[in-house]
């Protein structure tokens, strides 16, 4: 119980703290790749603070959905964050960590984000919601297959235990995990609305998905939306990191271990963020209907994992 209480506080605070950092890092790297300087590393934090202080402007057409959807978003994403240990694995998990629960908590957030997009009656919001739900629906089998490959390989459907398993073994014993990891990376790209699926930097209606949905949000609402988006990215990154390179994750709760855990996670997260930024920079935005190939790739990777494991 105590261990979980510590985990509850620490994990939440840590994920809230580092998420904007990775966002900022990606922005900087991308700017550098494009030959620009980019914003300061901590700019995102200032932006969020500024947004929290600003007034809330809502559409005349909107309803209570617009008011509650940012809250729903943030609380469900935070609840999802409890499923993914960033720094240490608690002794008991009280049902958190179930991989399906994790996924569906995020879907719940997405559901309300899409409703929020529709609420104002703008055609941008509608378009964003429509595309977001389409992509998420089409992508769902991929996610599930990847997850089931993970479950198969690691023989548990609790993310906490998955991490514990990977922590306790070397990479070589789970060679097929690399395949899964590649698929997980594609999930990461897709779920966090990045190129080639979406372009987070644009306000061009041809390309935008996620941004279109939150176009009507402002002030604290927008801040909550942005924050939850950042947390979601971090969570998925953490999933990938801790499955592939879990070292540094604290197995027991001592201050030193926690410190090491935090530092190693920051390090690994930064490397992954840089990699993502580079990946995004070298890719081109794909057509919405061109995404099929991209998804099939992930699907195939996960499927091959399963077949490999079955045969070996």
């Amino acid at each position: 119980m105590a261990s979980f209480a510590v985990y509850f506080v620490l994990n939440t605070v840590f994920v809230l703290a580092v998420s904007p950092l990775f966002m900022g890092l990606i922005k900087i790297v991308k700017a550098q790749m494009q030959g620009r300087r980019g914003p300061p590393l901590l700019q995102i934090y200032f932006n969020l603070l500024k947004l929290f202080k600003k007034e809330r402007v809502v559409s005349l057409n909107s309803s209570f959905i617009t008011l509650i959807s940012p809250y729903i978003n943030i609380i469900f994403i935070l609840a999802a964050s409890l499923c993914v240990p960033l720094v240490f694995i608690p002794a008991a998990n009280y049902g958190f960590g179930n991989v399906i629960l994790f996924l569906y908590l995020m879907v719940m957030a997405k559901f309300f984000m899409a409703l929020g997009g529709l609420d104002a009656g703008s055609s941008f919001g509608g378009m964003g919601s429509s595309r977001e739900m389409t992509i998420s629906a089409i992508f769902e089998p991929v996610v599930i297959i990847v997850v089931s490959a993970l479950v198969f390989v690691l023989n548990t459907f609790n993310i906490h235990q998955m991490f514990a398993t990977t922590l306790g073994s070397s990479v070589l014993t789970n060679a097929t995990l690399f395949l899964t990891a590649a698929a997980l990376f594609i999930i990461l790209i897709t779920e966090t609305s990045r190129v080639p699926v979406d372009n987070p930097e644009t306000h061009l209606e041809l390309t935008m998905v996620h941004e279109a949905m939150i176009l009507e949000s402002s002030g604290p609402n927008l801040a909550l939306m942005e924050l939850s988006h950042a947390i979601k990215s971090t969570l998925l990154m953490a999933l990938l990191i801790n499955i592939l390179v879990p070292w540094g994750l604290a197995a027991s709760v001592t201050p030193l271990n926690l410190l090491i855990g935090m530092l190693t996670f920051l390090l690994k997260g930064s490397i992954l963020a840089i990699f993502m930024a580079v990946f995004e920079s070298v890719m081109a935005k794909s057509r919405l209907f061109g995404l099929r190939t991209f998804f099939i790739l992930a699907f195939a990777l996960a499927f091959v994992t399963i077949v490999f494991e079955l045969l070996v």
């Binding site: 559901f111 899409a114 529709l118 769902e140 991929v142 297959i145």
Partner: peptide, 26 residues
């Protein structure tokens, strides 16, 4: 399993549509 997952995600999409179009906006 994968088709089942697809189903469940499509259902969510469908109800975003249903709720959004029936109740929200103008």
């Amino acid at each position: 399993l994968s088709l089942f997952a697809l189903t469940s995600a499509l259902a969510a999409a469908c109800f975003v549509k249903a709720f959004g179009v029936i109740f929200l906006a103008m």
